[in-house]
Amino acid sequence: MTVFDIINLFGLQVKAGRDQLHQAITGGYASDLLSDVIAHSQKGNIWVTIQTHPNIVAVAAMKELAGIILTGGREPDKETVHKAQEEGIPLLVSPLFTFELVGQLYEKGISGMNPC
């Protein structure tokens, strides 16, 4: 499954990174603690969070994540959108809360089984 596929499946809004949507998703990672994402996420993960500040893009770029989904309809900071555009990180928004969105992603076969 690619980032493009989940955008269509879940009606996600695309805020940045439109030219990077072909990336395959290796799994999912849900967390609002950046240090945790840095420590445990895997390359190609789609990251689900409510954090909106620019540092999320730096983390996603460093860990080579497939993209970021902001939940609860949270709007990213302007600076975050700008940075995501620059870094080519897909930045997406869902109106659903983290629990529900992750539940639906999981149902479609995206796993969060990263080694602890």
């Binding site: 609002d32 603690l33 950046l34 240090s35 954090q51 909106t52 500040h53 540092n55 949270r74 709007e75």
Partner: peptide, 14 residues
């Protein structure tokens, strides 16, 4: 809603 001047230390603490 969503406006914040919190720095990273504050945000990382939740």
């Amino acid at each position: 809603e969503g406006y914040s001047t919190a720095d990273e230390k504050i945000r990382e603490l939740g």
